[in-house]
């Protein structure tokens, strides 16, 4: 017994020796592609800069400007509304589709593939395709998705549902297939109705999938950029009496982008500060949501 343990230990030690070789490339890529730009980004949010090599430290000025910017506040609330709405729609529909496709319908594999496919198309392309579809319909009524905020909002919801439902569906299918047969059988024998089985047995058992899907759709909703840019680019605007604009369908990421490139180069620090605030926000909301739904998971 102790001999075996020792041999195991030495094997573990030997494997450990090699770990830098296997971990190295990933860690290096992570540092180059994420950690370093992230640290630099935080530093730049305290600077005045045009190009990153000529940055001048100015302290918290950028953050003050970011919080004073009315368009940023508008973009935040709009994004929050969008994220919550899309979270509900995507998850309810994805779960319904997954549930239907685990009932042993003929050709369910084909359906799964087809439902998943929209997820393989890039966001910019989707945005332009859907803007054509929406305008094709709306132009019959003499209007356009660029003319009414509510069209822009629901258009984006439809687009995101179309793109994301398939992806979430796959996760839910995996969860549904892992629900123990004997539990379902026991429920049946005890005389539970279909609805009771769904809510009392199935859903509690797929809580891990629900957690991950909600996390993904919530953070996706907050981080949305390509689709927003391609579908409406923030239009329509409300022209304020002082000549400034409120871009009614502009979400946070697009607001940051527009601040960075749309205004003069002096505003880049402000955009960077917004980006840091944005990160903290998305991370915090994501973690709170994870924590909340985790508590509802059952241990099997």
């Amino acid at each position: 017994m102790s001999k075996k343990l020792r041999r195991d230990n030495s094997m573990i030690r030997q494997t450990r020796m090699w770990s830098p070789l296997f971990m190295g490339p990933v860690v290096a890529a992570f540092i180059i592609g994420f950690v370093w730009p992230f640290v630099q980004g935080i530093y730049l949010s305290f600077c005045k800069f045009k190009t990153i090599s000529k940055a001048e430290f100015i302290g918290f000025g950028n953050y003050v400007k970011a919080f004073q910017d009315a368009s940023f506040t508008h973009a935040f609330w709009y994004t929050a509304l969008f994220a919550v709405t899309s979270l509900v729609f995507i998850n309810v529909l994805a779960f319904a589709v997954a549930y239907a496709l685990t009932q042993g319908i003929k050709g369910s594999n084909l359906y799964r593939t087809v439902f998943f496919m929209p997820n393989l198309i890039g966001g910019i392309v989707l945005g332009y395709i859907w803007s054509m579809i929406f305008d094709g319909v709306l132009s019959r009524y003499g209007t356009s998705i660029l003319l009414e905020s509510k069209y822009g909002f629901w258009g984006l919801i439809i687009l995101m549902c179309w793109q994301q439902i398939g992806y979430m569906m796959i996760i839910y299918i995996a969860g549904l297939q892992a629900v123990p047969e004997d539990m379902l059988e026991a429920a049946k024998i005890d005389g539970a109705t279909k609805w009771q089985t769904l809510f009392k047995v199935t859903i509690p058992n797929v809580m891990p999938s629900i957690t991950i899907c909600m996390f993904l759709s919530l953070t996706n909703g907050f981080k949305l950029f390509d689709q927003n840019l391609a579908l409406t680019a923030g239009q329509p605007y409300i022209i304020q009496p002082d000549g400034s604009t409120i871009n009614t369908t502009e979400m946070l990421a697009l607001n940051i982008y527009n601040t960075f490139y749309g205004s003069n180069a002096a505003a880049r620090g402000t955009a960077q500060a917004k980006a840091v605030i944005f990160f903290i926000l998305v991370a915090a909301i994501g973690l709170i949501q994870l924590n909340y739904t985790r508590k509802r998971e059952v241990q099997q």
Binding site: L147, G234, Q235, P236, Y237, I239, T245, N258, S263
Partner: peptide, 12 residues
């Protein structure tokens, strides 16, 4: 760019 975008929105 921002100035013209506002003008486009209004002209739309």
């Amino acid at each position: 760019d921002t100035y013209r975008a506002g003008l486009v929105a209004a002209l739309n």
